[in-house]
């Protein structure tokens, strides 16, 4: 009996491969690709409101442990220069630093639902790590071509006990490299509140990287473009980098 199973196993694997990866396998690959061990980047954030007014912010950001720890410091405009946010444990622990008052304050995790400097991204949206794997249950809805690329359309339903950032997310994952190119975020009423499109995907130090991300608020009719100006994954965090001490620098 054991011998029969051994003989059959290569065929079973072939059948499984022919059927394509499961939703969980795709989400695992997406998480790996989207969460390099470490990164150091400079970026800009352009907010265009529903009335067409534009604001541009620039920031420097560091991430480690596959996005579990991040530190973001704003460099422009002058009004918020030096404001910094330290997020540990996938943004479950947040500290803010305001240079005008020289005060560091621990924020409760509800703060991660706040908009980043009034943009369409929340602090939670910027958190990395294994949120998709741990806080959502995934299934493949269909395979379709989007922006000329064959994709898997994955539905991720939030697991209520895990306090997911959104009740539901639909994600389009490029089949060629498992890179997500679009995400739709839904609220409790199953309304598509926000949409994220990732573009200008370049291979940086072996990691596919979206140099541009556009988040559109479908209710407010505003949008925020996050542009990566510089990025490296070769950065190694010095000991104690993700600490309050460094937040003030």
């Amino acid at each position: 009996m054991k011998l029969k199973l051994l003989l059959l196993s290569p065929f079973l694997l072939l059948i499984a491969h022919a059927q394509g990866p499961t939703a969980d396998q795709i989400v695992d690959r997406v998480t790996n690709i989207m969460s390099p061990e470490n990164s150091h980047s400079k970026g800009s954030q352009t907010i265009i409101t529903s009335s067409g007014k534009e604001r541009v912010f620039e920031f420097e950001s560091w991430a480690a442990e596959k996005g579990k720890s991040t530190l973001t410091r704003y460099t422009k405009p002058a009004a918020i220069r030096g404001q910094a946010f330290l997020m540990l444990n996938n943004a479950d622990d947040i500290w803010s630093y305001f240079p005008r008052t020289k005060r560091i304050r621990k924020l409760a995790s509800h703060a991660k639902k706040q908009k980043m400097q009034g943009s369409d991204f929340t602090y939670e949206d910027m958190g990395g790590g294994d949120v998709f794997q741990k806080k959502f249950k995934s299934r493949i809805l269909t395979e379709e071509t989007r922006d000329g690329a064959p994709t898997w359309k994955i539905e991720m339903s939030g697991i209520p006990e895990e306090d997911p950032p959104y009740p539901k997310i639909i994600m389009w994952v490029r089949q060629s490299d498992y890179y997500p190119i679009a995400l739709d975020y839904y609220n409790e009423k199953d309304f598509n509140t926000k949409s994220l499109v990732l573009s200008d995907i370049q291979l940086i130090e072996e990691y596919p990287t979206a140099m541009e991300m556009v988040m559109t608020d479908n209710k407010e009719r505003s949008s925020t473009t996050m542009r990566t100006l510089e990025i490296t994954y070769a950065w190694e965090p010095p000991k104690g980098f993700f600490s309050e001490r460094n937040l003030k620098k």
């Binding site: 621990k106 924020l107 409760a108 995790s109 509800h110 703060a111």
Partner: peptide, 10 residues
């Protein structure tokens, strides 16, 4: 002491 309880900052 500063932290979080039942989703509220305390």
């Amino acid at each position: 002491v500063i932290g979080e309880m039942l989703g509220w900052g305390v």
